[in-house]
Amino acid sequence: MDDRLERVIRQQLRKAGKQFEEAKRAYTEAKADPEGNGENARRYGLATDDEGRARIVCRRHAERRAVAVDDEGRPTCFEDGHPDCEGCAEDVRDGVAESW
Rank of each mutant, 00 (worst) to 15 (best):
N40R: 03
N37A: 10
G17W: 06
A89P: 02
A97Y: 02
G36F: 04
D49G: 11
R42N: 06
I56N: 01
P34W: 03
V57G: 01
E86D: 14
I9E: 13
F20D: 15
C85P: 03
V96R: 08
H82S: 11
K18C: 11
Y44E: 04
K31P: 04
Q19C: 05
V57R: 10
F78I: 05
I56W: 00
D71T: 01
K31I: 08
G95T: 03
D33Q: 07
M1G: 14
R60M: 12
A62S: 12
D70H: 04
V57N: 07
R64V: 13
W100S: 07
A30V: 10
Y44T: 03
D80A: 12
A89Y: 00
D70Y: 03
G95Y: 06
A66Q: 07
V57P: 00
R25W: 13
C58A: 05
E98G: 04
P75V: 00
R53F: 04
D49L: 08
V69R: 00
A47N: 09
D71F: 00
G73W: 02
E90P: 00
R59H: 12
P34Y: 04
R59I: 07
A26K: 15
R55L: 13
H82W: 09
Q19E: 15
C77S: 14
R60I: 09
D84Q: 12
D33T: 03
A23V: 12
E86H: 05
R55F: 00
A89R: 02
A26P: 07
R55H: 04
A23T: 14
A41C: 07
D33M: 05
D80C: 00
V8F: 12
N37T: 13
R42S: 08
I9C: 08
A47V: 13
A16Q: 05
A41Y: 03
T76M: 01
D71R: 04
Y27R: 13
